[in-house]
Structure formats: structure tokens, C-alpha cells
């Protein structure tokens, strides 16, 4: 679930630049010529659909005065904020949350970015206070080992199951050939006219 959502959200900043959108011709509904969508064929039709589903992420929560005047710094602050979990709502990043604490943390992040602090150090600042829980991408350690290993375990288990099934199919003996009596009976049945 989380993976799907964060994947969608990570798509959004790219689509925000209308130049990119125009170039790829995917945002026909945003006042651009609609023809390229048809030209792309049915297989790519799901892309605008996915963008449509991601619309809630387009709506920035913060008020304009919250944003940094420098667009490059604001983009960096947003990128940092998207990696930090809102501790009140817990399934949103602080960039997407309306909670008071999320707003405070957005302000902390922006102050530090405006002061020219390195992105990793800004994240470390919040991480030191709220622990692994605040990171939407948890670090690999003893507690999260199982979480990170799950895809490999699932894939390995699936491959093992397929191999075992194939071995079993290969080991199944061919059925014995039909006897003469059976063959005659089969021929009789075949010749019986169907009603």
C-alpha cells in the first residue's frame, strides 16, 4: 500500500513542470492538445488515469507564505519533507498533512534549508528527535531487517514453489498406453451418432 502511494507521489513533482507534461503530451486534459493521448495508443492511457488518481498530492497543504521565496530551496525543502512521516496522521508525509505538528516540522525544515544546511543534516535533526518512525523510508537495521527482506523471501518462496511443482510434474509417470479392448471401445464411442 505504502509503496504504491509513495510511488505515485514521487511521480508528481516531475509532472508538476508543465513543460515536461507538454513534451510527453500526457496532460491533454490540462488545456493541451488532446491528440497525443490517442496517438500514444491504448496501452499508455492508464498514465493520465494514474496522474488523475494522484491529484490529491497536487494540492499542496502549506499556505503560500509558508513556502520559501527561493524556488530551488523550496523544492529541496519539499523533497526533505516528503521523506518525513507526520507523527499525528502517520500515513502522510509532513508535506501532505494538515496537522499542527506537521506544520511545525515543515517550518523547522524550511528554516534549516534557508540557513543553507545540508539535506541529510536536516533529516538527521528530525530523526534524532523522533527516531526511525519519522522516516518514511526506514533504515536497514535489526528491527527492520524482516521488513526489508520480505520481497526477497516472497520471491525466493515463489521460485522454490515453482521448482518443486515442476519437479513433481516431471516425476509423474506417463499413463500406460490403452489396451486393445479400450481402443476398440473408444472407436465405437466415436462412431456413435450424436443426437
Amino acid at each position: 500500500m505504502m509503496g504504491i502511494f509513495s510511488a505515485l507521489k514521487r511521480v508528481v513533482p516531475k509532472a508538476r513542470s508543465s513543460r515536461d507534461a507538454q513534451a510527453s503530451g500526457l496532460l491533454g486534459f490540462a488545456g493541451l492538445p488532446a491528440a497525443p493521448i490517442r496517438a500514444l495508443g491504448p496501452r499508455l492511457c492508464f498514465v493520465p488515469l494514474m496522474l488523475l488518481l494522484a491529484v490529491p498530492a497536487f494540492a499542496a497543504v502549506g499556505t503560500p507564505e509558508e513556502r520559501l521565496p527561493d524556488p530551488a530551496q523550496e523544492a529541496r525543502a519539499e523533497a526533505i519533507g516528503r521523506q518525513l512521516r507526520c507523527l499525528v496522521c502517520q500515513n502522510q508525509s509532513i508535506e501532505d498533512s494538515d496537522a499542527d505538528l506537521a506544520r511545525d516540522l515543515r517550518r523547522v525544515v524550511r528554516e534549516r534549508v534557508a540557513a543553507g544546511e545540508d539535506s541529510t543534516r536536516v533529516i538527521d535533526f528530525v530523526h534524532a528527535r523522533y527516531g526511525d518512525f519519522v522516516l518514511l523510508r526506514p533504515p536497514v537495521n535489526a528491527v527492520t531487517a524482516l521488513l526489508w527482506a520480505t520481497p526477497a523471501i516472497a520471491l525466493g518462496g515463489g521460485i522454490l514453489a515453482i521448482l518443486l511443482m515442476r519437479r513433481r510434474i516431471a516425476a509423474t509417470p506417463e499413463p500406460a498406453p490403452l489396451t486393445e479392448a479400450e481402443r476398440t471401445r473408444l472407436a465405437e464411442l466415436d462412431e456413435t451418432p450424436r443426437v
Binding site: 507523527l87 499525528v88 499542527d100 505538528l101 511545525d104 516540522l105 523547522v108 528527535r129 523522533y130 527516531g131
Partner: peptide
């Protein structure tokens, strides 16, 4: 009042 000390303590509610 600004809630900054609370953030330093790791308070989330």
C-alpha cells in the same frame, strides 16, 4: 507557545 521545545523532546501530542 511555539511548540519548539516540544519538538526537541520528541513530543508528538
Amino acid at each position: 507557545e511555539p511548540g519548539r521545545v516540544a519538538i526537541d523532546w520528541g513530543v508528538y501530542g
